[in-house]
Amino acid sequence: MADTIEKVSIVLSKGSFEGAYPALIMANGARAEGIEANLFFTFFGLDVVHKARWEHIKVATVGNPGLHLATLAGGLPGVSSVMTHYLERKMDRLDFPPIPEFIEMIADTGAGLYGCKASVDLFELTREDLVDQVKDIITVGEFYELAAGGQIIFT
């Protein structure tokens, strides 16, 4: 048997639609392979587990050359919402869960979801602002303890 990965700890630092999904897919995919997985939400990535915001994660339509949209057009009111709805519809057809359902699913797989203490302090949030699937708010040191012996992926 070739080398295997036993554990991954994934840092999610972006609060955009395209910033969130890859990390969520990687965490969920790790569990599906029987790999232990942790997700650490830091900086704007906290929005993905923020009760008032996790249903409203949007595609960045400005500063996102991959969309092939003129920067001025991307900045018009509503463009980000329209683009997000468009992608959500496409993803629904491929059976990608919406972000809240995906977070619930990943927690159900037994992955550990954690908020970053420095970011929680910075944005003046409390435990109550974050969804129940978040196990704890931890320091960077505690994150490294959790990640010890495994791979760390930063997104």
């Binding site: 569990r31 599906a32 392979e33 029987g34 699913m105 159900d108 797989t109 037994g110």
Partner: peptide
Amino acid sequence: VPIKQLYLLFPKGPAKV
């Protein structure tokens, strides 16, 4: 069978195992 239980039944990955 809900996902939580699937992982309890097949900890090494429900669909795969």
